[in-house]
Design a protein around this nucleic acid. Sequence first.
DNA 1: GTAGACTGCTCTACACTGTAGACTGAGGCC
DNA 2: GGCCTCAGTCTACAGTGTAGAGCAGTCTAC
Lengths: 203, 203
Amino acid sequence: MRKLKTSRQPEILDAALAIADERGLDALSMRAVAERIGVTPMALYGYFRNKDELLDGLVGRLLTGLAPADHGATWEERLRAFAWATRRMAAEHPAVFPLLLFRSSVTPDGVRVVDLIYQALLDAGVPEAQVPRIERLVSTFVLGFAVSEVNGRFSAASNESRAHRGGPDAPAHRRLAGHLEVDDWDAEFAADLADLMRIIRPV
Amino acid sequence: MRKLKTSRQPEILDAALAIADERGLDALSMRAVAERIGVTPMALYGYFRNKDELLDGLVGRLLTGLAPADHGATWEERLRAFAWATRRMAAEHPAVFPLLLFRSSVTPDGVRVVDLIYQALLDAGVPEAQVPRIERLVSTFVLGFAVSEVNGRFSAASNESRAHRGGPDAPAHRRLAGHLEVDDWDAEFAADLADLMRIIRPV
DNA sequence: GTAGACTGCTCTACACTGTAGACTGAGGCC
DNA sequence: GGCCTCAGTCTACAGTGTAGAGCAGTCTAC
């Protein structure tokens, strides 16, 4: 079986996504997916060459849902919309989302999303030679932020456990004791985006 | 066995790191580590409660190597040193490095690194209330950049395959065709850092 | 109308994973 | 001597990805 079937690919990806959402990425096994669509594990290998390819398909599915409706908004609004949509998707699919940072996205969907960002940056007046770099800067931050959030890198570090650990080696922590707890991550994300916009605007 | 032994923990982590460096994260199994230090897999469970804890230990080890010598340099130099050291470590341990983004780093080592960044930002004149947020912004970007680089998210997207895909749905790609290839990631990283410094300086 | 190819799937099997549980043998202490 | 703790082993189990063979149905060509 060299050529892959495509007919049931969406169905399979739906099942995989549902499993990951419900029971985490560790529970996403070929057997689990197969059982969910009522089929033997080996049947999946007619649609995806192996589990890695199935995961790539999952990334593609996420990307598809990321291209926003860019109805004539300003470049800034479009960029913000992309960023918030990304973060929202991370919240909806916390288990799968980190794959976006790992599996490179040269799928057509990925290219399409990046193209929208390129266009926004061009509209913002960013010199052509700088556009790809700024795109990577922005998307790296947005992905990194969203991943950190859903994986607990932020929350674990911000709660009081860190403030209390402000031991002898952490003088700055002690000085900042009153500012270490964060309760509004939306506000933080918004402030970060505002800072990034300041990078983009004058360049 | 409630309390864990610590005597051979460093030795075990060394072995684990070596395996991951040589054969990738997938090859990092309890059995492989055990074999490397000449011991039965189950012997490891006296030192780490399970594989997850071993991975956490690995993250701690990486963090330890990250705290730079901050000899009286300016805040900007210290921040740059941290960023480059992070990126260098990603290049040295590409398989393990992404764990930094996943496993939250509330270990003493992690706190110490963050504290150095806090101090640099304070020295830069960032208002106390903003310091933790800016720290997260910077470290998120730096980690995200390094992870993207070692996992091929950047390189796969930048090479000509993307330019060629500048199909009907990617007009901006076509317009930017001459700027899509990157050969000097050091320069890109440096430029990104310069942009971030512009965020920090005036705040 | 029947032979052959193709499709979509199943069954079996293998090597490998993390880890629970029970065990052994070597000191050290009273 | 009797006992305890420590460090490590051995066995076993349930779960993993996936190679390979095979099987029922449908489509196509002669």
